[in-house]
Amino acid sequence: MQHYKVGDKRLDRRCQQLQTQLMHRDCGQSLPRLFKQSAQLKAFYWLVNSPKLTPKAMSKAYPDGVVDWASRQPKTAKEH
């Protein structure tokens, strides 16, 4: 999944990894239970506390990433 474009390639990659991990888990659990390895939990806390990852950046990052991803997909329908 390459839907996040925060502006920093490491943050983009980390957002994508976390999204993939969280999609396959019960998000009703506590964070320590969601991230079974302490390194994963620390990486999550590092990400959400990053000064580069502001609410404004996140609200723009996902839509921009989806538009970028969609524009790279092969055309499947005839354009009229």
Rank of each mutant, 00 (worst) to 15 (best):
P74Y: 02
D64V: 05
G7P: 03
A39Y: 14
D26L: 07
F44L: 11
K52M: 10
K56S: 08
H24A: 14
D64R: 04
K60H: 09
Y45L: 14
G65H: 12
D26P: 06
V48F: 12
Q37D: 06
M1G: 05
P63N: 02
Q37Y: 13
A77Q: 13
M23I: 14
L31E: 03
R72N: 07
C15T: 04
A77C: 11
K9C: 05
S71F: 11
L11C: 11
C27P: 00
D64A: 06
M1V: 08
R13E: 11
M58T: 00
M23Y: 15
T20P: 00
L18R: 08
H80K: 09
M23K: 15
M23N: 15
P55Y: 05
M23F: 15
Q17A: 12
K78L: 14
R14D: 10
L11K: 02
K9H: 03
G65S: 02
L34K: 08
Y62I: 04
L53G: 03
Q2V: 08
L53D: 00
P51T: 11
A77H: 12
T76Q: 03
R14I: 08
A57W: 01
K60C: 10
A43E: 14
C15R: 05
S71C: 13
Q16R: 06
Q21R: 15
H80R: 05
P51C: 13
H24E: 13
T76E: 06
V6G: 01
K9L: 07
A61S: 08
L18V: 13
W46A: 09
S59C: 04
K78D: 06
K78T: 11
L31H: 00
T20K: 11
V66G: 03
F44W: 14
S38K: 13
L22G: 08
D12Y: 01
Q73Y: 04
D12A: 05
W69P: 05
A39L: 15
Q17C: 11
F44G: 02
K75T: 07
V67L: 12
A43L: 12
P32S: 00
P63V: 09
W46G: 06
C15P: 02
M58V: 04
R33H: 10
H80T: 08
H3L: 14
V6C: 07
K56D: 06
W46E: 09
Q16G: 08
R10D: 12
